[in-house]
Design a protein around this nucleic acid. Structure first.
Lengths: 199, 199
DNA sequence: GTCTATATCCAGATAGAC
DNA sequence: GTCTATCTGGATATAGAC
């Protein structure tokens, strides 16, 4: 039936619209300081309508954190596919990530959301599970690449996982830095950071 | 009068005790997820008694964030005093900071508090002012040292402030990393990070 | 100084009209 | 599907007894 299909499309669109506003609010203020009213107002709908689309505020949050973690992991998987030698993978990864930090609000929001969720014990249990489940993969993948590069003698000798920790904490730190000083901030050149890992 | 003095001492002790518990709670859960009841319970006192010592939850928070920022700045000032050549200052600073991250909960809590406050727009105005007022000093100081080291040819050529950004975002990232995985996590060796700045 | 009891408010969630 | 009105719980903050 035509109407049913159309209704479903509207429903999906509304859901996306609510999620999009919720992402912004959560990224800027966190789970507890964000009020359902804020999200509704930003989306230009009545406060009660949110509950036509989501069971609770927590539900929205969980879905958003899940998306954020998935997005990050997906990016890491893509890195895995690229046909490059290990040290070149690290180099391009850093270049791309820093470029994304400078240009895209989306990625920064993802970082902020994950940082907040990771840094707070007062998040829903579902969120905690998602984090313990999905948080480690990026570290593992980068560690693998580091180890491979060490075999080729192009990556500095050190515990690969520690290098991965350094990799992600730097990237993450820079993303948060950028997020908290909107406007003209200069992100360090990718070559600086690359130097940290290459022989 | 003996009684008055004693009362004042008790008053100060209670205040410190409340602040100490509040720091823990805020560091773990943030301003909005932390309830006055939580703090009171952790301190082993009645919920209402908090208001005998502080005007509001926000007031406690502001005082704590102020202390955290001051503590960081104080550490930076101490670095300034040390009689060392620039590249050695950077080296010792990294060593000391990483050592502190590994051993002291205090410093990590400070990092968490500042990170949360910096990363959220939903904090009290007083807190915002404190941050804009005190946040930049550590970056400036490290940038100065970097510039001095460049004069001597011991620090890598790059914008000094960008190097400072890299310095603090790395340290901060590692502190948060450690905070969120309590237990056996290995922080990268200081030499790795030092390598990033020295020629 | 400390506690218990309570006023007040606000936000999440529901009910029901359109 | 959307809105307005409302219920309800919980949290901040205050009042008053001890």
């Amino acid at each position: 039936m035509r109407n049913q299909k159309q209704n479903e499309r509207i429903r999906e669109e509304r859901k996306e619209q609510i999620l999009a506003e919720a992402v912004k609010q959560f990224a800027h203020k966190g789970l507890f300081a964000t009020k359902i009213k804020d999200i509704a107002e930003a989306a230009g709908i009545a406060q009660g309508l949110i509950y036509h689309y989501f069971k609770s505020k927590e539900d929205i949050y969980v879905e958003i954190i899940k998306d954020a973690l998935d997005k990050l992991n997906e990016a890491v998987y893509m890195l895995q596919e690229i046909q490059l030698r290990p040290h070149e993978k690290i180099k391009t990864a850093i270049e791309e990530l820093l470029k994304t930090i400078e240009s895209s609000d989306n990625f920064i929001q993802t970082c902020r959301l994950i940082a907040q969720a990771t840094n707070s014990t007062a998040i829903p249990d579902k969120t905690k599970e998602l984090i313990t489940e999905k948080q480690d993969l990026p570290y593992q993948e980068i560690a693998k690449i580091m180890a491979a590069g060490q075999q080729e003698g192009t990556i500095i000798k050190a515990d690969p996982y520690e290098l991965a920790v350094l990799f992600w904490t730097s990237i993450n730190g820079l993303a948060i830095y950028k997020a908290t000083r909107q406007g003209a901030v200069s992100i360090p050149d990718a070559r600086l950071l690359t130097r940290l890992f290459l022989t």
